[in-house]
Write a protein that binds this DNA or RNA. Sequence first.
DNA 1: TGCCAGGCCGGGT
DNA 2: ACCCGGCATGGC
Length: 214
Amino acid sequence: MTVLLDIYYKLSHAFGPQHWWPGDTPFEIAVGAILTQNTNWGNVEKAIGNLKNRDVLSAKVIYEMPVHELAELIRPSGYFNIKAQRLKSFMNFLMREYHGSMKKMKSGETHLLREQLLSVNGIGPETADSILLYALEKPVFVIDAYTKRVLSRHCILDDGRSYDEFQALFHAILKKDEKLFNEYHALFVKLGKTFCRKSKSLCDTCPLSTFKKQ
DNA sequence: TGCCAGGCCGGGT
DNA sequence: ACCCGGCATGGC
């Protein structure tokens, strides 16, 4: 299964460094991870821009803000009512467990942190792992729709397999290296956006076209 | 215009 | 244990 390494090298060569996640602070990254659920990143940027303009991009402020007011600010990100609740749930957790500090949270043990995040309503496996990897710099591989699509289209793992099964594959094959996981997932997203949209099938200009007949 | 985007939850089977 | 409808904006 060194095919996973081959894919990484091909993507890395094709696209170069991605310098992810787009976000200035660990807290902003965590907020972005929730807002981008099933949503175009451009819309998330608008929502985060609103929060910044109002100077409310902090755990304590969002924790105390009325949920309907928060919903209005994040409206461009879509699902704004449910996402406002989800942000609130995360702030409740962050304030209760870590005094609203991502820095304090970072000192936690990875497995415990993952369980804690998954227990927050509105945070599933991808959002939890995105926070762990990109905000807290823990070596956890993030699986998303693009990753599943690419691997299944190249017959490496069926799309019907679970999140944990996809993740276990990467964890088994790759060295647990936060920098590698960061870059690799970012490359998958780049590839997905460019060549692997849901409505399109494989094309010859895709950097992975040579894997097409596995 | 309709389809899609860096998911997740709750209820039903 | 799976399956499905709901959640919603903005870009192409």
